[in-house]
């Protein structure tokens, strides 16, 4: 799935960047950086969040649906270990896609711009955009996955978990991520404060997830 997504993204990026360059006209790097930061970065983060959300929705209730939850729960894993495993399993494929997308985007954007406007050697990303594109997918995906794992542990079906999560999480995450991008008034200070808040939120949610994880309820709950 990951290679497929990377190929898909390279086609989408290539086409979209060429369209941007041809229709908007690139005059300078600052102008282009703004377009990329506010528009493309949202696209970069969209898929990476969707993929972990899908995997995380399946993580616990999916095991229950497939009857594999009992053998798993009788292994010596603690609740914390089990949840960390589930979170990372959902998170890492999404992050691979996110960072793969980022590398592709940087190569394609600068390549296309260089071909169209040889005077511009490097238009995107700026240092802040680059750090945002590395840190934000991680924090937002982590947040989305934690919420989904909590929902998955309390839902009766994968469909129910995905539906609830999809409706509540995805729009909020995409909106939240977009609000943190350069070009929307976010400077280094706001970025750092936002990062700290997100980190704390992630830690709190992890604790909540472990606290809410209830083997008894998981085994006995029925639709």
């Amino acid at each position: 799935m990951i290679p497929f997504l990377l190929v898909l993204m390279s086609v989408v990026f290539g086409g979209f960047i060429t369209f941007l360059v041809l229709s908007w006209g690139i005059t300078d790097a600052i102008n282009f950086n703004f377009v990329m930061a506010s528009g493309m970065s949202t696209v970069i983060i969209m898929l990476p969040i969707m993929l972990p959300v899908m995997i995380a929705a399946d993580s616990i209730v999916g095991e229950k649906e497939r009857h594999t939850i009992v053998p798993l729960l009788t292994t010596p894993l603690t609740d914390g270990e089990l949840l960390r495993g589930k979170i990372l399993t959902a998170l890492i494929p999404g992050l691979l896609v996110a960072y793969g997308n980022l590398i592709l985007a940087v190569v394609i954007v600068n390549g296309v711009v260089l071909m169209m406007a040889p005077q511009l050697l490097w238009v995107w990303p700026s240092l802040l955009s680059l750090i945002q594109a590395i840190v934000m997918p991680l924090l937002f995906s982590f947040l989305a996955v934690e919420i989904m794992v909590i929902l998955s542990g309390r839902a009766n079906t994968v469909y129910e978990a995905y539906q609830t999560g999809g409706v509540l999480i995805l729009p909020a995450m995409v909106f939240g991520f977009s609000a943190f991008l350069e070009g929307t008034g976010v400077d280094w200070w706001i970025f750092m404060i936002g990062t700290i808040i997100l980190l704390l939120l992630n830690l709190i949610l992890y604790r909540v997830a472990v606290r809410l994880f209830n083997r008894d309820e998981l085994i006995t709950r029925t639709g």
């Binding site: 609740d79 960390r84 495993g85 589930k86 399993t89 494929p93 472990v210």
Partner: peptide
């Protein structure tokens, strides 16, 4: 792939098993 990956994740966390919940 997902299940194999999960194996890796759980195996990776084995050394941290001593962090127990409750009064274990």
């Amino acid at each position: 792939m997902h299940q194999g990956f999960q194996t890796l994740i759980f195996t990776f966390f084995q050394p941290y098993r001593f962090e127990r919940e409750g009064n274990a």
